[in-house]
Amino acid sequence: DRHTIHIGDITIHLEGFSEEELKLAEELIKRGIHLEEVKRILEELYR
C-alpha cells in the first residue's frame, strides 16, 4: 500500500505504514526531523 504525506509543496511517499504511523511521521517531519530519522523511529516503534 502507498501513502502520501503533503507538507507545503513537498510530497513524501511512504509505503507499508498504517494511518497512525503516517500521522506520527508527518508530525515529526513538520517538527524538522530528517526523513531518515523518521523512518528509523517508525521502524523501532512499530516493527
Rank of each mutant, 00 (worst) to 15 (best):
D1H: 10
D1P: 03
D1E: 05
D1Q: 04
R2C: 10
R2V: 13
R2K: 14
R2H: 10
H3Y: 07
H3L: 13
H3Q: 04
H3A: 07
T4Q: 12
T4I: 08
T4R: 02
T4A: 06
T4M: 03
I5N: 03
I5E: 05
I5T: 05
I5W: 00
I5V: 05
H6F: 04
H6W: 04
H6V: 14
H6G: 07
H6I: 11
I7E: 06
I7M: 10
I7A: 09
I7P: 04
I7C: 03
I7D: 07
G8Q: 05
G8W: 11
G8Y: 08
G8L: 08
D9V: 09
D9T: 10
I10V: 13
I10G: 06
I10N: 08
T11R: 07
T11P: 04
T11M: 09
T11S: 12
T11A: 07
T11Y: 10
T11D: 07
T11Q: 10
T11H: 11
T11F: 11
I12F: 11
I12D: 03
I12N: 03
I12G: 03
I12Q: 05
H13K: 10
H13M: 11
H13Y: 13
H13D: 10
H13V: 10
H13C: 05
L14S: 03
L14G: 03
L14M: 08
L14C: 12
E15P: 12
E15D: 10
E15G: 10
E15F: 15
E15A: 13
G16V: 11
G16W: 12
G16E: 05
G16P: 02
G16C: 06
G16M: 08
G16N: 08
F17T: 04
F17R: 03
F17P: 02
F17W: 10
S18Q: 07
S18T: 13
E19M: 15
E19P: 11
E19T: 12
E19H: 14
E19D: 13
E20R: 06
E20M: 10
E20I: 08
E20T: 12
E21L: 14
E21K: 03
E21C: 01
E21W: 15
E21T: 12
L22K: 09
L22W: 13
L22R: 08
L22E: 04
L22S: 05
K23V: 08
K23Y: 06
K23H: 11
K23A: 07
K23I: 06
K23P: 02
K23N: 05
K23L: 08
K23M: 10
L24R: 04
L24E: 02
L24Y: 12
A25H: 01
A25Q: 01
A25R: 02
E26D: 08
E26W: 15
E27M: 15
E27P: 02
E27H: 11
E27Y: 15
L28G: 00
L28H: 01
L28Y: 10
I29T: 04
I29N: 01
I29Y: 12
I29P: 00
I29W: 12
K30S: 09
K30F: 15
K30H: 09
K30M: 12
K30N: 10
K30P: 00
K30W: 15
K30V: 08
K30T: 10
R31S: 06
R31A: 06
R31Y: 15
G32K: 01
G32S: 04
G32H: 04
G32M: 12
G32L: 09
G32N: 04
G32V: 07
G32T: 04
I33G: 01
I33P: 01
I33S: 03
H34C: 05
H34F: 07
H34V: 11
L35Y: 08
L35C: 01
L35N: 03
L35T: 04
L35P: 12
L35D: 03
E36A: 10
E36S: 11
E36F: 14
E37P: 00
E37K: 07
E37C: 02
E37I: 13
E37Q: 07
V38W: 13
V38P: 00
V38D: 00
V38E: 00
V38G: 00
V38R: 00
K39N: 04
K39M: 15
K39I: 14
K39Y: 15
K39R: 09
K39T: 05
K39A: 08
R40T: 02
R40C: 00
R40W: 09
R40K: 07
I41S: 01
I41G: 00
I41F: 08
I41D: 00
L42M: 07
L42C: 00
L42R: 00
L42P: 00
E43P: 00
E43M: 15
E43R: 06
E44T: 04
E44M: 10
E44I: 12
E44V: 07
E44F: 15
E44R: 06
E44G: 01
L45H: 02
L45S: 01
L45K: 01
L45T: 04
L45F: 06
Y46N: 06
Y46S: 04
Y46L: 14
Y46C: 15
R47T: 08
R47H: 14
R47D: 04
R47Y: 02
R47V: 07
R47S: 10
